[in-house]
Nucleic acid binder design. Structure first.
Length: 210
DNA sequence: GGGGGGATTCGG
DNA sequence: CGAATCCCCCCG
C-alpha cells in the first residue's frame, strides 16, 4: 500500500531525555526549532520562556510542590499544563532532574501540519502565522488540555516532541518574559524569553514592513 | 472558607 | 483597556 496510507510519515525523531536535563534557560534554547505535535497537527517551536521553579518568583513552583505543579518536579520531558484566566491552557516542557522543579513555556509555533484542523479548533480563520502565535492559542490549536498534563513528550503518546533536523538558532532573540506582574520582583527583568529572530508568530512581531 | 490574582485573548 | 471565567493558594 502507499506509504502515505495509515499514520502520516514521522515528522522527526524522538528527542533524547538528556537533552532536556539542564537548566530551564539552557533547555529553552535547545527547544527552539523542535517540533511539537498532537495527532496530525504539528508546529515548529519559535518562542519559549524559561521558568526556574524554586529560585524563580515568577514560577508556579516558587512556593513549593503542590498538586498543580506536580509535573514540574518530574523527570525532564514531561508535559506541564496549567489552566489560567478561567479559559486558557498553556503547555510547558519539564526540565531539570527529577525532584527539581523547572519548565519551559511554549509561547509560539510555526504551524506545520493540518492547519485547517487547527483553524477549526480555534474557531476562526486566521493566516497561518497567527494560528499558534500565543501560549494558549497553540494549546487550543493542537487540542492540548489539562487532561494531557504529566504525559511524557518523549514517548509515543498524544503529544510528542520531535527533532526534524532543524537546529536551534545560534543566537536566539532574548527578551524579558511576557505578562509578569510587578509582584515577582527582580525576576521580571531576566531575559528568559527566547525566540527565533524576526519570526512573524513571535509575541510583538511586526506584521507590516516599514 | 473567603478572596485576590493570574506565564491570556479578544473586542471595543 | 477591560471583560471573560475558573482555579489555585495564601491567609484568617
Amino acid at each position: 500500500m502507499p506509504a502515505s496510507e495509515g499514520t502520516a510519515r514521522p515528522l522527526g525523531v524522538t528527542v533524547s531525555r538528556e537533552r532536556l536535563d539542564g537548566t530551564p534557560i539552557e533547555v529553552a534554547a535547545q527547544l527552539l526549532n523542535l517540533v511539537l505535535t498532537t495527532g496530525e497537527t504539528a508546529g515548529r517551536i519559535v518562542e519559549v520562556e524559561a521558568y526556574a521553579g524554586a529560585e524563580d518568583q515568577a514560577s508556579h513552583a516558587f512556593r513549593g510542590r503542590t498538586a498543580r505543579t506536580e509535573a514540574m518536579f518530574g523527570p525532564p520531558g514531561l508535559l506541564y499544563v496549567y489552566f489560567t484566566y478561567g479559559m486558557h491552557y498553556c503547555a510547558n516542557v519539564v526540565c531539570w532532574p527529577e525532584g527539581v522543579a523547572g519548565a519551559v513555556l511554549i509561547r509560539a509555533l510555526e504551524p506545520l501540519a493540518d492547519l485547517d484542523v487547527m483553524r477549526e479548533r480555534r474557531g476562526r480563520d486566521e493566516p497561518a502565522y497567527r494560528i499558534c502565535s500565543g501560549p494558549a492559542k497553540l494549546c487550543q490549536a493542537l487540542g492540548i488540555t489539562r487532561l494531557d498534563g504529566g504525559i511524557d513528550l518523549l514517548a509515543d503518546g498524544k503529544v510528542r516532541l520531535l527533532d526534524d533536523g532543524v537546529p536551534p538558532p545560534e543566537k536566539p532573540e532574548k527578551r524579558p518574559r511576557i505578562g509578569l506582574s510587578a509582584r515577582v520582583g527582580s525576576a521580571r527583568a531576566l531575559a528568559w524569553n527566547l525566540s527565533v529572530k524576526d519570526h512573524l508568530s513571535v509575541t510583538g512581531a511586526k506584521t507590516r514592513t516599514g
